[in-house]
């Protein structure tokens, strides 16, 4: 059975659309703030290779092309035909009318075949997918507004 996931989330970031677009346009920046991407390698101006940090030992990889690119406004990408996963994404940057920065809207779709890979995708993104996307966008916001991502990993702790 094919598994299809589509999620949308919006966040307002107190920065200009240009700055946000620039960061996002280089997909190699994405693993800094997304939970499930291990790395992205940009091959050229439109094609990139994405690797997820999998559940258990399985990671999933795909090639994606930028299919629409409007500078400072919108980036749309989709997996190249023939891969294991069919994935597409959209990120949109709209300046707020009231000087609050930029409304950032993300839409992600995953369409994966039946079987082990489909199950992995479902495990990765299927559990509270909107929450995951929202958390990724919150971390993107932290990075852009605060210059770093708030964390407590690595701080001292007493006996658990």
């Amino acid at each position: 059975m094919n598994q299809s996931i589509k999620v949308q989330k919006t966040v307002t970031i107190n920065r200009a659309p240009q700055e946000l677009y620039r960061c996002w346009r280089n997909f190699e920046n994405l693993p800094q703030f997304t939970k499930h991407l291990k790395s992205v390698k940009v091959y050229n101006d439109h094609r990139s290779h994405w690797i997820t940090s999998g559940v258990v030992d399985r990671s999933i990889e795909w090639d994606a092309d930028i299919v629409e690119d409007r500078e400072n406004e919108l980036i749309r990408w989709a997996t190249v035909e023939g891969g294991d996963v069919s994935h597409s994404g959209l990120i949109e940057f709209r300046p707020t009318p009231n000087d609050r920065g930029t409304v950032v809207r993300a839409v992600l779709e995953y369409d994966s075949p039946a079987g082990a890979i489909g199950d992995t995708i479902a495990k990765l993104f299927g559990e509270a997918p909107e929450q995951q996307l929202g958390d990724d966008l919150s971390r993107f916001k932290m990075l852009m507004e605060a210059g770093e991502i708030a964390t407590t990993e690595g701080q001292p702790h007493g006996a658990q």
Partner: peptide, 18 residues
């Protein structure tokens, strides 16, 4: 954080990013 909508309006305890 000092950089978000709230910090910049002196509403520090409502910081979006910490």
């Amino acid at each position: 954080c000092g950089g978000c909508f709230f910090c910049q309006r002196d509403l520090w305890s409502l910081c979006d990013n910490s």
